[in-house]
Computed example of a mutant assay.
Amino acid sequence: MAAMAYNIQQLADLAGISSRTLRYYDQIGLLIADRNPINGYREYAADAVDRLQLIRYFQTFGFSLQAIQALLAESPANQLTALTDQRRRLAAKRDHLTTLLNTLDRTLAAQQGGPQMSDSEKFAAFKRDQIATNDREYGAESRRRYGKTTFAASQQRYASLSESDYQAMQATEQQLFTQLKQVTTTGDLDSPAAKAAYQAHRDWLCFTWNNYSTAAHRGLAQLYLDDARFTAYYNDRVGHPNAAKTLVAIINHYAQ
């Protein structure tokens, strides 16, 4: 039995999109329709339905149409890798939300007279979330640069932070942002603010680094320049487009 061919409106209804969208996909070559030899109307066979499913998946994951078109031009193996990676990300988000819901339920119960949570339990969900985020965003690059063992040890040390150390780590990073903002404005690497920013960054690292060295610190600074995600992290939190670049200059100035 031949597979069903859909006309444009049938496929639009099936996929939950407009026929206008399908016509646009046809025009840009993202989802090319067959033409009925009798009336010239657009028709879509089974392979087009499968391709549209992938397009819808990747749109949901935040890919642009241009990125989707490039990805669908690659081999099935590369497409499978992309889907598998997205599944891993979704699973991590699901686990994160599950943890937050469980912690919130326990918090609500405690506030209503139920079993009380220990201080460490109150912040465990936030630490697990940060660990998952670190692994998802920076894990591959960190493992490549520093090795699987070093990265795993850093993650484990973070997970084992006491409540007071966890709070101190957050406060140290905020101190870093404050001093870095001042140096980014003045550009003075020999100022007390620059020295304080360096020390705050070093102290922040030592909460999770088992063995600090100035060489490793400078290597991390280079990563801040090479990886746009790190650059954006510091620029966004300090509120200045040169914050990450300034932090790198500070590290290279003092980590001797």
Rank of each mutant, 00 (worst) to 15 (best):
H253L: 05
K245E: 12
Q182L: 15
A33L: 01
Q9D: 08
A110N: 02
Y57D: 12
A228W: 06
D188H: 04
Q222R: 11
Y224G: 01
Q174V: 09
T184Y: 06
Y166T: 07
D203S: 14
Y212I: 00
H253E: 04
A109P: 06
Y44K: 01
R51W: 04
N252D: 15
D119I: 10
L176T: 05
T208A: 10
L108A: 13
Q86M: 13
K181R: 14
A140D: 07
I32T: 10
A91W: 10
A255S: 10
F58K: 00
G147Q: 03
S64W: 03
D227V: 07
N36R: 04
T60G: 11
W209Y: 10
L223C: 13
A12G: 00
V238D: 01
D190Q: 11
A194P: 04
Q79Y: 01
T84A: 02
L189R: 06
Q175N: 07
L97F: 08
S64P: 01
A193K: 07
A3P: 03
I17H: 06
L72C: 05
A228P: 01
D203F: 10
R23K: 09
N242A: 12
L223W: 08
T150F: 05
I131M: 12
A12M: 03
A2K: 12
Q79S: 01
Y234Q: 14
R87Q: 13
D13T: 06
L225D: 04
Y24C: 07
T84M: 03
Q175P: 01
Y166W: 14
L189E: 04
I250N: 07
Q66H: 09
Y146L: 02
E121A: 12
S191V: 01
T84V: 02
S154N: 10
S75D: 14
T98F: 12
D227Y: 04
